[in-house]
Write a protein that binds this DNA or RNA. Structure first.
Length: 116
DNA sequence: TGGGTGACCATAG
DNA sequence: ACTATGGCCACCC
């Protein structure tokens, strides 16, 4: 996997934000992309997540879901159930690959990080 | 060079 | 509520 410098910078920012997600909270790809300036699309965030496991530091990718709160990326984990188990371990209820009461658990980086 | 794909999202009808 | 379409940007044939 080769990364141009611009991508590497984008990846770093994505990982930084993902690492800042509080335990028991979740966010979506679009919010991260928008927070980073939306110069990139949400697809790039998902692409970054696909490469997250290349990072030395653990990236809580299980806290990133799509805008519906669905665990779209679960198949990319070590085990298909890993993502759900990690979320449930943090107190996030998951039903049929979807986060229950998603709005309650939602964590918006653009809002939380900017307003302190 | 160009088409297909992707852990996506917003809008229109 | 649901489908269709376009935008997004990088990757891989």
């Amino acid at each position: 996997m080769k990364l141009s410098e611009k991508n590497a910078d984008f990846f770093e920012k994505v990982y930084m934000v993902v690492k800042l997600i509080p335990k028991g909270r979740v966010t979506n790809y679009g919010s991260i992309a928008h927070y980073l300036g939306s110069g990139r699309s949400s697809r790039m965030v998902g692409w970054a997540m696909n490469n997250a496991h290349f990072q030395k530091d653990f990236v809580p990718a299980h806290r990133v879901v799509n805008r519906e709160g669905v665990l779209t990326g679960k198949h990319h984990f070590a085990s298909p159930t890993q993502m759900q188990e990690l979320l449930e371990a943090e107190g996030v209820e998951v039903l049929n690959d979807k986060i229950v009461n998603f709005e309650s658990h939602f964590w918006n980086p653009a809002k939380e990080l900017e307003l302190d």
